[in-house]
Simulated scan of single mutants.
Amino acid sequence: MKLQWNIFVAFFRVGILGYGGGPSSIPLVHKEVVDKYKWMSDEEFGDLLALGNTLPGPIATKLAGYIGYRVSGVLGTINAVLATILPTIFFMILLLSSLSSIKGYDWVQGMTAAVIPVVGVMLAVLTWQFIQKAGKGMGWVPTGAMLVVVFVLLEFFNIHPGILIGVLLFLAIVKKDRKKKKKHLSEREGDSS
Rank of each mutant, 00 (worst) to 15 (best):
G57Y: 01
Y66M: 05
S100L: 12
L147N: 05
L75K: 15
L164C: 03
G137T: 02
L147R: 03
S101K: 15
P27A: 11
T84D: 14
Q132E: 08
N6D: 13
V115F: 09
V29K: 12
L96D: 07
G162M: 02
A113S: 06
L28S: 00
V115N: 08
E155T: 08
L55D: 08
V9D: 04
Y66T: 01
D191R: 14
G120M: 10
S41A: 08
F8H: 03
T143A: 01
A172M: 15
A114M: 00
E189P: 02
A145D: 00
Y37V: 02
I89P: 05
G73A: 07
V9R: 13
V14K: 10
V125G: 02
I131C: 07
Q4D: 09
Y19G: 07
D35K: 13
D177H: 14
K62N: 00
K2A: 10
F170P: 02
I26V: 11
E43Y: 01
V148S: 10
S97Q: 14
F91I: 00
V34A: 09
E155S: 12
W5C: 08
A113C: 05
P23K: 03
G76F: 00
L3Y: 10
I116V: 10
D35M: 11
K179F: 02
Q132I: 04
P58A: 10
F90S: 03
F90L: 06
L147W: 05
G22E: 11
V71Q: 13
P142N: 03
I165H: 00
T127F: 15
F151D: 05
R188A: 15
W5I: 12
H184Y: 12
D35N: 12
G120K: 13
A80I: 03
R13N: 13
G76M: 08
L96K: 12
G166A: 06
R188Q: 14
G120P: 02
G57T: 02
D177Y: 12
M111G: 14
I89R: 12
R70G: 12
L154M: 05
V148T: 07
F91V: 02
K179D: 09
R13Y: 08
F151M: 10
G20T: 04
Y69H: 14
V174C: 15
K31Y: 12
V121E: 13
K181R: 08
M40Q: 05
G166K: 00
D177T: 12
G137D: 03
I78R: 11
L95T: 04
V81P: 07
T112L: 15
T54L: 04
A124N: 09
S97R: 15
S192N: 13
V150H: 04
M146N: 00
Y66H: 09
V29M: 11
T112H: 15
V108G: 05
V118A: 13
F130Q: 06
D177C: 14
V174F: 14
Q132M: 11
L185Q: 00
T54V: 04
E32M: 08
P23M: 09
V149C: 05
L123K: 09
S193W: 13
L164Q: 00
I173G: 09
Y19R: 09
G20E: 02
V121K: 13
V34R: 09
